[in-house]
C-alpha cells in the first residue's frame, strides 16, 4: 500500500527548539553556491594566491636552496606582519571577495523576496535574527575560508618550516591580528552583500549593486583625491578603508595619513546601516501580501 493510499500519517517524533535553528539555512546556502555553474572552479582558483604566499613562506626558510632564483634580492621574502597584511588586503584579494559576494550573496535574500520564500521561513519558529545569522554564516564560510584559514596556516607553516617558535616570539599578537582582520572582512562583506541583496527582488540587480557600490566608492575617491589631495577623502573608498584597517591591525603605517580607527568607524557604520536595511526589508508585514 502506498503512502497516498493509506491516507495521512502522523509523525511520531518530537519537535525540538534549537539554538542553531539558522544552521539549515547556512548549509543550504553553501550547497546552492557550489551548485552554481563555474562556482567550484572559480572558488578553488581563488586559493591560488594563498598557495603562492605559502610557497613564499617555504622559500623564505630555504633561502640558500633558492638563492639562484632570487638573484641576490631576498628582502621581499622577509616574513613579517606586512607579508600577512599584503595577502589579506591587496586589491586583488579584496576584488576576489567582491566576486565571491556576487556569486554567493547576490541572490541570497533577493531570491527569497522574489519567490516569496520569507513566508515559508517565518511560518516556522525562526526569528528575523536567525534568518539573518543563517544567511550571514553562509557568506562568512566563504570569506573565512579565504582569509582566516590561509592566515592561520601561514603562521603554522612558518613555524613548521622554521622548526622553532622565534617568529611567534617576535610577533606574539600576529594570530590575533589575523583573526581580527578576518572578522572585520567577514562582518563587512557579509553585511554589505546581504543589505544590497535585500534591496532588490532581482539577484542580477543585487549583484550589480555589490559590484558597483564597491568600485564606484573607489572611483569617487580618486576623482576627489586628484583634485583636492586631502587624505581624509580615503574614507570615501570601501577598498581603501579596508586597507587602512589592515595596516592598523597589523601594526603598520596606514597608506594614507588618517587614523585607521576612523576607517574602522566608517566600516562599522556601514555595517550598522546594512543591519538597518535588513531590519526594514525583512519585515513580517511583507511575509503575507
Amino acid at each position: 500500500m502506498t503512502v497516498r493510499e493509506k491516507g495521512y500519517t502522523h509523525w511520531e517524533g518530537e519537535l525540538k527548539e534549537s539554538r542553531w535553528v539558522w544552521f539549515p539555512l547556512t548549509r543550504l546556502g553553501i550547497k546552492m553556491a557550489f551548485q552554481k555553474r563555474f562556482f567550484k572552479l572559480f572558488y578553488f582558483s581563488t586559493f591560488l594566491p594563498a598557495l603562492i604566499f605559502l610557497a613564499g613562506i617555504y622559500i623564505s626558510e630555504r633561502l640558500e636552496d633558492f638563492r639562484f632564483m632570487l638573484r641576490g634580492s631576498p628582502a621581499f621574502l622577509k616574513i613579517t606582519p606586512n607579508y600577512f597584511k599584503i595577502y589579506l588586503s591587496n586589491s586583488l584579494f579584496l576584488f576576489i571577495l567582491v566576486l565571491v559576494m556576487i556569486f554567493v550573496g547576490g541572490g541570497l535574500i533577493a531570491d527569497d523576496l522574489r519567490f516569496n520564500a520569507l513566508q515559508l521561513y517565518f511560518a516556522r519558529p525562526l526569528r528575523k535574527i536567525d534568518y539573518v545569522i543563517g544567511k550571514m554564516a553562509t557568506l562568512s564560510f566563504f570569506i573565512l575560508l579565504l582569509s582566516l584559514v590561509p592566515g592561520v596556516l601561514f603562521i603554522l607553516f612558518k613555524l613548521l618550516f622554521a622548526g622553532n617558535l622565534v617568529f611567534l616570539r617576535h610577533y606574539p599578537w600576529l594570530p590575533l591580528a589575523v583573526v581580527g582582520y578576518s572578522l572585520v572582512l567577514t562582518l563587512f562583506f557579509a553585511a554589505y552583500a546581504l543589505a544590497l541583496s535585500a534591496l532588490s527582488r532581482n539577484n542580477r540587480y543585487a549583484s550589480l549593486m555589490i559590484f558597483g557600490v564597491y568600485f564606484i566608492s573607489d572611483i569617487i575617491f580618486n576623482i576627489f583625491y586628484q583634485n583636492f589631495h586631502h587624505p581624509y577623502l580615503v574614507l570615501l573608498s570601501l577598498k581603501l578603508n579596508l586597507q587602512q584597517v589592515a595596516a592598523g591591525l597589523f601594526g603598520l603605517s596606514p597608506p594614507y595619513a588618517v587614523p585607521w580607527s576612523l576607517s574602522l568607524g566608517v566600516l562599522l557604520g556601514l555595517v550598522f546601516l546594512a543591519f538597518v536595511i535588513l531590519q526594514k526589508r525583512i519585515r513580517s508585514v511583507e511575509v503575507v501580501k
Partner: peptide
C-alpha cells in the same frame, strides 16, 4: 500561503525537508 512561494534552485524533497528541519525536526 496563497501566493506562489518556493525556494528556487532546489528540488522538492530538499525544500520540504529543510522546512521540516526549521520547524524543529531532526
Amino acid at each position: 500561503p496563497e501566493d506562489e512561494s518556493y525556494i528556487p534552485g532546489i528540488d522538492g524533497v530538499t525544500l520540504t525537508a529543510l522546512l521540516g528541519e526549521l520547524a524543529g525536526m531532526p
